[in-house]
C-alpha cells in the first residue's frame, strides 16, 4: 500500500508539473522525491516478493491499514518538505514582501 500510494502521489505531482508549467512552484523537487521513494520501495517489494512469494499479495487487514497510514504520512511529509523548500527559496518573493510590510 505504501508503494501504491507513493506511486499515485508521484504520478499526480508529475501531471500537475506537466500541465501547470509554473516553474516557480518548484514541483520538480516533489516529483523527484516521490519517484525516488517509489523506485526504492519497488525494489523492496521485489525482494519481499522473492522471499514470500504470492503471500506478499495477501496482506492482513491490520497490515494494510498500517501501510496505508504510512503511505499517507510519507506523502504528507514530502509535501511538508516541499513547502519548506518553497518558502525558503521564495521564488515569487511573497514571504519577503510580507515580512517587509510587517517590518514597516
Amino acid at each position: 500500500m505504501t508503494l501504491l500510494i507513493t506511486v499515485y502521489a508521484a504520478i499526480a505531482v508529475t501531471l500537475i508539473w506537466y500541465f501547470k508549467q509554473d516553474h516557480s512552484l518548484r514541483l520538480g523537487v516533489l516529483c523527484f522525491m516521490y519517484w525516488g521513494a517509489a523506485i526504492m520501495w519497488l525494489v523492496d517489494a521485489i525482494f519481499e516478493y522473492a522471499d514470500m512469494g504470492s503471500e506478499y499479495f495477501e496482506p492482513s487487514a491490520k497490515e494494510m491499514l498500517n501501510d496505508s497510514f504510512l503511505g499517507l504520512s510519507v506523502v504528507a511529509l514530502g509535501l511538508v518538505i516541499w513547502l519548506i523548500i518553497l518558502l525558503i527559496k521564495d521564488p515569487k518573493g511573497t514571504v519577503r514582501d510580507s515580512l517587509k510590510r510587517q517590518a514597516k
Partner: peptide, 20 residues
C-alpha cells in the same frame, strides 16, 4: 542535481518508514 534529488528524497522518505 536530478539524481541527487531522487536519492536524497527517496532516502529521507525511506528513513521515515524505518522510524515508523
Amino acid at each position: 542535481k536530478w539524481l541527487t534529488r531522487m536519492l536524497t528524497g527517496g532516502s529521507f522518505l525511506l528513513a521515515f518508514e524505518h522510524v515508523w
